[in-house]
Design a protein around this nucleic acid. Structure first.
Lengths: 223, 223
DNA sequence: GTCTATATTCAGATAGAC
DNA sequence: GTCTATCTGAATATAGAC
């Protein structure tokens, strides 16, 4: 538990804020770089496989110093997952709405693929947590991802009522979009390997976008 | 290194075979149940997260006894991955061929989804290995999965030449089929959670099959 | 906030008796 | 083939000095 010295902690209101501001900012910045590196290593090695020692070493700090900011490995892990889910929602929320299904689906796929391209580690940490049976993040999932999905399903159903799209099982349609787009983060090493290159580039993501978009729009086309 | 005693190891030809047969059969059976349990635990906890102690305990044998059959954790892991890749190919090989694209795609998706339903752990171990950057199974992947993919891509291109299917980037089409179908193994806990149940059942897989098949066939329809 | 030192637990692997 | 005993290394976490 971090405790500021009496000199600052005793002061209240504006004065305290003025003094604490730079301290807090430094702390926030450090916490942020720790989370970024932890995300990378949890993604590659998993919760048990990653070690606080390695993470600290990569950052050039001591393991004990890391434990000063995050009292335990598990809390660091939870924080990483929380950040991922937050940015996920930030990027995806409200994309499926309005009255233009085609534009919505195009944007949705584009946003998800961009997330895969820009934040592959976040997606992988999430995938590993899911495969483990969501032992540490089930409630957060239920509370935050489920409402978002249900809202999207409802929107699709309204579109189907209006005859704008075919009537499919939209839950599984969403699963399929998630799977296809997230795979370009989670399975990137395999895909790159099979394309004969070291890693996926912008063109690969663009080609993926074209194919996946075509699939979804074609499937949604009213009979 | 296992060494049979002199009495049997000295004998050669048919006599030795007759004596060794039951021994070997017992060994093969034991190796098989060890692999099955290891697959389950590697799937759930990952390579580093799974422990030989836990695997042995679940099987009711000692860790040392387990190490008698597999000299190291890594060799056990490699064996598990090898088995997965083998059964994968056994089920999928040659499905994309002939002159009926629609039937081929339907069968391919059906077979992949069946694998996800029947062998989810195998798929998950594979996914974890990929996310780790394929540190222990890259050559095997390259040597065995890549030729299979290239053959399938060539078949699709022949179909496109004949005007039977639209001309897409078939590599990414295959990635998308893999992703959508494997997700019903790898992401099963998440999907089940979002469908409000403990685990996916036959009906879920059937609904997934309908949606995914529709996507792929619609995308492949010539313009 | 950062460091040194240490407690504790647990994992993989080997040796050798039976 | 299976067991007991043991070696070795690594990891999380805590205590306390500065």
């Amino acid at each position: 538990m971090p405790k500021r010295n009496l000199t600052t902690s005793k002061k209240a209101g504006a004065a305290a804020k003025r003094i604490d501001a730079p301290l807090r900012a430094a702390r926030v910045a450090k916490v942020s770089v720790i989370c970024a590196e932890a995300e990378r290593q949890f993604a590659q090695y998993g919760f048990e496989g990653a070690s606080l020692d390695m993470i600290a070493q990569t950052l050039g700090i001591s393991r004990q110093n890391l434990l000063y900011y995050f009292p335990s490995k598990e809390l660091l892990y939870i924080q990483v997952l929380d950040n991922v889910l937050n940015e996920w929602r930030l990027r995806m929320d409200g994309l499926v709405s309005g009255s233009n299904p085609e534009a919505a689906v195009r944007d949705y796929i584009r946003a998800k693929l961009r997330f895969s391209a820009e934040r592959p580690a976040g997606s992988q940490v999430f995938a590993r947590e899911v495969m483990a049976g969501m032992p540490r993040f089930r409630e957060a999932m239920m509370a935050r991802a489920m409402p978002a999905m249900n809202a999207d399903v409802k929107t699709f159903e309204r579109w189907a009522d209006a005859g704008l799209v075919a009537r499919l099982d939209f839950r599984h349609l969403l699963f399929s979009i998630w799977a296809s787009t997230q795979a370009y983060a989670d399975m990137a090493p395999q895909f790159a390997c099979m394309l004969g290159k070291a890693s996926l580039d912008e063109e690969d993501f663009e080609r993926a976008r074209v194919v996946i978009t075509r699939q979804m729009l074609a499937a949604l086309k009213p009979d």
